[in-house]
């Protein structure tokens, strides 16, 4: 049985999308069948990463109940597959669609939760995906909490920013814990000098384990090369020997055992 992994954060811009995409690509490289879904309906991103408009339908349509999930998924195995199959589900980036999604009522959100929960059967059991990765909006958004409830594992992407740390602590108490979710922290954009020696690294992990009271799965340095790439290609796919790619390989294995 596969796993559904949601990437979430308190503040925006912590690296959820970058890490979702690269984690998905890492699993594909390892021969897993992966399905990556853009649940950030406020600021859709994956259509830009995959430069595809091939889907007949958007994830918006699936949640609206007008089509099934197979109509939404785009097969990007040709362009991005290594040994595993790679599918993406996109959020509709049109302004009108964004506005519509932000005006949904509680009844609709309740049904959307039901549709997201049923992905476990359709994507993992019937379509045999090994990993379903959910990229979400930051903070306490309906769509993000729906994603968290539907996921088997939640990865919280945090920075070293004080307000982000505080917010993440609060979300742990008031969100992740309440749903009994297996939750791990990804410290992202860490200054490389903080991780320079083994000893410093250990100190860093120990400190943040106690700050967040959750396992720190990985500390990912801030890489100028990643910034330089500007999201024009999937970094770990192209730069196979880069330390960023190596870090993601390690992270992927850790999540498998998590």
């Amino acid at each position: 049985m596969g796993k559904i992994i949601a990437l979430h954060s308190y503040k925006g811009g912590t690296g959820k999308t970058l890490l979702s995409v690269n984690l998905a690509a890492t699993y594909v490289k390892k021969g897993k069948n992966v399905c990556l879904l853009d649940l950030d309906f406020r600021a859709p991103s994956l259509h830009a990463v995959f430069k595809t408009n091939n889907s007949e339908r958007w994830l918006n349509d699936y949640l609206n109940g007008v089509c099934e999930i197979d109509k939404v998924l785009v097969d990007v195995t040709q362009e991005h597959g290594r040994s595993g199959k790679f599918f993406v589900g996109l959020a509709n980036p049109a302004t009108e669609a964004i506005r519509e999604m932000s005006a949904k009522d509680r009844k609709w959100e309740m049904r959307a939760l039901g549709r997201l929960l049923s992905l476990k059967t359709s994507l993992l059991n019937d379509m045999h995906h090994d990993y379903v990765i959910l990229d979400t909006s930051p903070g306490l958004q309906y769509s993000s909490i729906n994603a968290i409830v539907s996921a088997d594992v939640v990865l919280v992407v945090t920075s070293l920013d004080a307000s982000d740390i505080k917010g993440t602590q609060r979300m742990t108490r008031e969100l992740y814990d309440l749903f009994d979710k297996k939750t791990g922290i990804l410290m992202n954009k860490v200054l490389p000098e903080i991780l320079s020696s083994k000893k410093e690294k250990q100190k860093f992990y120990k400190h943040f384990n106690s700050v967040h009271k959750l396992p720190i799965l990985e500390a990912i340095p801030c890489f100028c090369d990643v910034l330089r790439a500007g999201g024009t290609y999937i970094f770990s796919e192209e730069k196979t020997e880069h330390p960023f790619t190596k870090t993601l390989d390690k992270l992927a294995t850790k999540i498998e055992e998590f």
Binding site: R106, K107, E109, M110, L113, Y142, I145, N146, V149, E174, L175, L178, F179, D180
Partner: peptide, 17 residues
């Protein structure tokens, strides 16, 4: 009432489960 996630969050632990 709708049993949406915000409502789930507001329920006491034993009922939420």
């Amino acid at each position: 009432d709708a049993l949406d996630v915000m409502t789930l969050l507001s329920l006491p632990d034993h009922l939420r489960k």
